[in-house]
Simulated assay, not measured.
Amino acid sequence: MNEEAEPIVATRRWLDRAVIGLNLCPFAKAVAAKGQVRYVLSEATTPEALLEELAYELVRLQQTEPDEVDTTLLIHPKVLTDFLDYNDFLDDADAAIEALELEGELQVASFHPDYQFADTDYDDVGNCSNRSPYPMLHLLRESSVERAVAAFPDPDAIVERNLATLEKLGIEGWRKLLQP
């Protein structure tokens, strides 16, 4: 894997400036600081090839000690660039977890440059909470999520705080934040 490839560089910048810098995910800082985030740049050009890679990465994460790799970011700039196609693919990702018998152990979180929550306008700044520089599947350990949520006094407040942070920043501020 080329750690200097633009999609990885942009994703690291997004993680540092937005996710950690704006504290959109209060659990991200610790795993990033410990070097427990695995960045994978997919060369897949079809959903089928991406699904194979996803299955491989799910098994790899499951078989790797959490103190070595706690989470994986599978960045796929050449496939599922259309958000609706990407969103449909998430059902396949869930099916892969089930087929690999990893339900309750691993999950996939979704991030996309054009992420749009239901019943929002495209430019609603709240969508930025799930916008990444490139289409990405975030592979997480359920046990890590449970520990992090248990340690956070009010996990439901995260969403509200994120919306307030993003509204204060604005869509133009978001775009500037991610510039090289």
Rank of each mutant, 00 (worst) to 15 (best):
P26K: 08
R12D: 09
F27D: 08
K34W: 05
Y134K: 05
R12T: 08
D121N: 10
S143G: 00
Q36H: 09
C128P: 04
E4W: 04
R12M: 04
E52T: 15
W14P: 11
D91R: 11
V79F: 13
K34V: 03
A118L: 02
P180F: 00
S144R: 10
D123V: 08
A28Y: 07
D119L: 02
D124E: 12
A33Q: 15
N23D: 15
E53Q: 15
A118P: 12
V69L: 04
E101H: 13
D119F: 01
R131D: 00
N130E: 04
L15A: 10
I158F: 11
E98N: 09
T11H: 13
G170S: 00
E105D: 07
K78P: 04
R131M: 00
G104Y: 04
D92Q: 14
T71R: 09
S132E: 03
I20S: 11
V108T: 01
A157H: 10
L90R: 09
T71L: 11
L163Y: 09
H112G: 01
A44Q: 02
D88E: 14
E146L: 10
P133K: 09
L163A: 10
T46M: 03
E142T: 01
E146C: 05
K78V: 01
N87D: 14
T45Y: 01
N162V: 08
A96W: 01
A99L: 03
G21Q: 10
A118T: 06
E52C: 14
E48A: 15
E142R: 00
A150Y: 07
A49Y: 01
R12H: 09
V9F: 10
W174R: 00
D92Y: 05
Q62R: 11
K34Q: 15
T46R: 01
